[in-house]
Design a protein around this nucleic acid. Structure first.
Length: 683
DNA sequence: GTAGGGTTAG
């Protein structure tokens, strides 16, 4: 026997390579079989969307078909297409879509299809598209369908629910918006409104929440989740009244209010600075029992700290402990930061010691808060020492905020070199400097006019895709103003700001205009003011600030120029500011201006100059006349006649819409004013 | 799904 076995072994050994191929091939064949079985096995196939009505055709379905090679006759047969699409939608959505498009192109007459076929076709396609995340396709399909039939409520309902479950919140709202164009569509399914409310909250479309909630209530009682979403909406918009109201509603509807909901409402009160309301709510929560936790107390404590009520904050902390709740790292963080901001270093140290004795673990935030404390107290060396300590602990590393504070601390005491070293250290630690870090460094360049360094930093900022913000530009304005690089300062707002797509906030222009005035750069100040009027209408407050500075610095031409520009831009000038300009500038008044101020006395004062104006009209032709403060010139007479309070200053300046016309208007105005004067003197 | 630390602005 032995030789035989040996022979067999030898044979097998010689054929070893061929044999392994055989085994591999057999394996592949088996695998292929089982896979293709899976594909055609209707039982194992993914659950198909249930057609709304009628029966699904399953006969003769070819799930491997390639739409572009199908016989055109079949493509025009509604029953065939609906059956194929239904089948393909189960596992090959792309093909189903392709088949639908090819069929439409091949002349499938959807208009002539039975309503049932049509609804089925679109229902399968829409739900399948959403299931694979292609909600835009779903919307387009519904638009297609709308050309032939009304979209029915059931399709909208399943689309809404599917979109929500797939977290396609924005798409869900778009689909609803499209279908709701049909005024006849009435959605009575409560859960559709639930989904829409959730989508509105998730996409921060807060203006829509109340409507969806109202609809929801029309068709049923809201679930705890619905209330939860409304509370989130109320909290995100700091609508504390609504938030509190919702708690009442929940209690009335006997819906359980859990601690998260209570805490969210509490946070809404705190962020709306309604600390008394928040305190009442805390008492209510204590009375309800079992719903207060550390987060509750921390939320309110932070509110007190932010309002500068550290006494209340500390009291609350003690109350919390007396009620058997242990403070967390967050609690200590709030207290430490609060006392530091309040410049109560001793109390901060007390808290720190309590933390130590209670065995509270340090973390990055707590270390950073300490660093900030020392930085604020001007003890930069101490701050850096804490940082070194922190670095020694391997489990805890400084983050971007830690470095941001350290960099600012060094910049503030003029240690720019150290700040740059920190920037390097931060990069070495694998942290990417963000906007605030760059802003702090740029701010460090102001005092010693480190223009070149600032420009390099700004370049690096842009190159590393860190988007500058209004804060960045505000800092750069200060820098250029400090260095008296006025051209660059103006270019910054004129060119760089739009280039970086930063919103042209009025305050940036105001800031630069003020810097210009302070340096007696009147022409530039009005240039900047003009730029401001090009992107927005300056507020009365802004005009007040600038005119006030003009008056104080005796820059009367600039003041007059700004009033002109304000008038051209229809920007309101507070009558008191115009009156102030009037008082400091008699010559300006004499140059042909009429003022009607809020008080009778100052109106009369302005009108004393009427003869001079008249002379000017006669000798120089048209006199420029403009209304400032939104009061039309033609109503100037009325203003004076009635002597009413609250009338804005009116200053003359007819714009050059033809000399004759201007002169005629000027003369008409003067006779108006004269008759008004005559009436008054007759009183 | 809820709580703590950073930049501007006379």
């Amino acid at each position: 026997m032995e030789p035989v076995i040996e022979l067999v072994y030898e044979g097998l050994y010689m054929l070893r390579i061929e044999l392994s191929f055989l085994v591999a091939l057999a394996f592949l064949w088996v695998a292929g079989q089982s896979l293709s079985n899976k594909r055609v096995d209707p039982v194992k196939a993914r659950k198909a969307p249930a057609p709304r009505r009628g029966t699904t055709r399953r006969a003769n379905v070819d799930e491997t078909l390639t739409p572009s090679t199908v016989d055109p006759k079949k493509l025009q047969d509604p029953s065939w297409v609906v059956a194929q699409v239904a089948a393909l939608c189960r596992s090959q959505v792309q093909r189903a879509m392709e088949l639908y498009r090819v069929a439409v192109r091949a002349g499938l007459n959807i208009k002539e299809m039975s309503a049932n076929d049509c609804q089925q076709l679109y229902s399968h396609l829409v739900t399948a598209a959403i299931r694979v995340g292609q909600a835009d396709d779903a919307l387009n399909l519904m638009k297609d369908l709308r050309r032939f039939q009304e979209v029915d409520v059931a399709l909208l309902a399943s689309a809404t629910k599917l979109c929500t479950s797939k977290q396609l919140f924005a798409d869900c709202l778009s689909i609803y918006d499209f279908t709701s164009q049909d005024p006849k569509l009435e959605v009575q399914d409560k859960s559709v409104w639930s989904c829409l409310l959730f989508c509105a909250v998730e996409t921060k479309s807060y203006h829509r929440c109340s409507f969806f909630f109202e609809r929801l209530r029309t068709y049923g009682s809201p679930s705890p989740k619905d209330f939860g979403n409304m509370v989130r909406y109320a909290s995100s918009t700091s609508n504390w009244r609504l938030a509190l109201h919702l708690i009442d509603d929940m209690q009335k509807a006997q819906v359980e209010v859990d601690s998260v909901v209570y805490n969210t409402v509490l946070a809404a009160c705190v962020s709306a600075e309604q600390l008394d309301q928040a305190r009442k709510l805390l008492d209510q929560m204590v009375a309800a029992g079992g719903v207060t936790d550390v987060i509750t107390y921390n939320t309110l404590a932070k509110g007190y700290a932010k309002a500068g009520r550290m006494d209340m904050c500390f009291e609350l902390y003690q109350l919390m402990r007396s009620r058997g709740l242990s403070p967390s790292q967050v609690t200590y963080g709030i207290l430490l930061d609060g006392f530091i901001n309040d410049n109560e270093v001793d109390k901060a140290v007390d808290i720190f010691n309590t933390m130590r004795t209670e065995g509270c673990q340090m973390n990055t935030v707590l270390y950073t808060t300490l660093i900030k404390g020392f930085a604020r107290a001007g003890q930069v060396d101490q701050a850096v020492q804490i940082y070194e300590e922190m670095r020694k602990e391997r489990s805890m590393q400084p983050d971007v905020i830690t470095f941001s504070i350290l960099i600012k601390a060094n910049c503030d005491v003029g240690r720019l070199e150290e700040a740059l070293k920190m920037l390097l250290a931060m990069k070495e630690a694998g942290l990417k400097p963000d906007e605030v870090v760059f802003n702090n460094l740029l701010g460090g360049c102001i005092n010693d006019c480190k223009l070149e360094l600032a420009k390099d930093l700004y370049k690096e900022m842009i190159a590393s895709n860190v988007k500058p913000s209004v804060a960045t530009f505000s800092i750069l304005i200060r820098l250029y103003a400090q260095c008296k690089h006025w051209d660059e300062a103006v270019d910054l707002l004129r060119q760089e700001l739009p280039l970086q797509k930063v919103s042209p906030e009025p305050r940036l222009f105001g800031q630069l205009a003020q810097c210009c005035l302070r340096d007696r750069q009147g022409r530039r100040a009005s240039e900047v003011y003009k730029m401001l009027t090009e992107s927005s209408t300056p507020t009365a407050a802004m005009n007040s600030t600038l005119l006030g500075m003009c008056a104080k610095l005796n820059m009367l031409d600039t003041g007059a120029e700004i009033m002109h520009l304000a008038a051209d831009a229809n920007s309101r000038v507070d009558p008191r500011d115009a009156a102030m300009m009037l008082e400091v500038n008699a010559d300006y008044l004499g140059s042909g201006a009429i003022f009607a101020t809020p008080t009778k006395a100052s109106a009369a004062k302005g009108l004393e100059h009427l003869p001079a104006l008249r002379t000017q009209v006669a000798s120089k032709g048209p006199v420029p006349i403009v209304a400032i403060g939104g009061v039309d010139l033609s109503s100037a007479g009325d203003c004076i006649r009635s002597g009413a309070d609250g009338v804005a200053v009116v200053r003359g300046l007819l714009k050059s819409d033809g000399p004759e016309d201007s002169e005629a208007k000027a003369k008409a105005l003067i006779s108006e004013v004269r008759s008004a004067l005559a009436e008054r003197s007759g009183e």
